[in-house]
């Protein structure tokens, strides 16, 4: 496994508020990594920096040895917590859109998953239910053969059955040589699939290591450790 993400002294400020404070973090490829922390801890800020939506105030970050830019965006597949598909498009148009811009997009896989979800490819996005929109977005992201998957709160706001579906979709369809970073504060649901854990609070790194090693060392589950580390 090689080094995929390297953050050196990574800092991001919004005015006087520091969202990330001198973060040093190295993540390897081929792992499912849980990015855990309470609300406002800096998880989304870190993810946005990695996918090029934000620029750091200080420090350095690279993905696969490259500075964040158009080249890294080609190998990063990002699922935000918001609906981003233009409402005027039909489902088949957004598939064509992804096919045009991402060389690693697997259209047959995407169409197969959408068909099994009973989503009509001719349907307009604005007529889809909120849940179906989220599923379409997840299918688009996981149908890419990317090197890094960034999933920001993929299971927040969905029912337990849908959570299991989302997690199974992630495990089944991602490139095993790639890394998946899942940002969430719903630890119990994702703990079973995590290889590594990164815990952040107030922009600082609190815990980083293998999920199994942490469980063995601490003698408790990641969820229990989370509650202890971030106790109010």
């Amino acid at each position: 496994m090689s080094e995929l993400i390297k953050c050196v002294n990574l800092t991001k400020s919004y005015g006087s508020k520091e969202a990330l404070c001198s973060l040093d973090l190295t993540l390897e490829s081929g792992k499912i990594i849980g990015l855990l922390g309470p609300n406002g801890s800096g998880k989304t800020t870190l993810i946005k920096i990695l996918c090029g939506l934000l620029t750091p105030t200080d420090g350095y970050v690279s993905i696969d040895g490259m500075k964040i830019g158009a080249q890294t965006k080609a190998i990063v597949s990002y699922l935000p917590e918001r609906t981003y598909i233009p409402s005027w498009m039909r489902v088949k148009h957004i598939l064509s859109y992804f096919e045009d811009f991402y060389a690693d997009f697997r259209r047959p896989l995407a169409e197969d998953m959408l068909t099994r979800l009973k989503v009509d490819l001719n349907q307009k996005v604005k007529t889809l239910s909120k849940g179906n929109k989220e599923k379409v977005q997840l299918v688009l992201v996981m149908s890419r053969n990317a090197k890094l998957y960034l999933l920001d709160e993929p299971i927040a706001g969905v029912d337990p059955a849908a959570r299991d579906y989302i997690l199974d979709t992630i495990i089944t369809n991602y490139n095993p040589d790639a890394s998946v970073i899942i940002s969430t504060h719903l630890i119990q649901d994702i703990e079973r699939i995590l290889d590594d854990v990164v815990m952040i609070q107030y922009g600082h790194l609190k815990v980083h290591g293998s999920a199994d090693a942490i469980r063995n060392e601490k003698g408790m589950s990641i969820d229990q450790l989370f509650r202890e580390v971030f106790r109010c």
């Binding site: 090029g52 080249q71 990002y78 598909i85 233009p86």
Partner: peptide, 18 residues
């Protein structure tokens, strides 16, 4: 404005284009 600075920006600004 919609493509670059609203929710659609999460799609547009993460495309591999400058």
């Amino acid at each position: 404005k919609n493509n670059m600075f609203t929710d659609e920006g999460y799609l547009t600004n993460t495309l591999p284009v400058t």
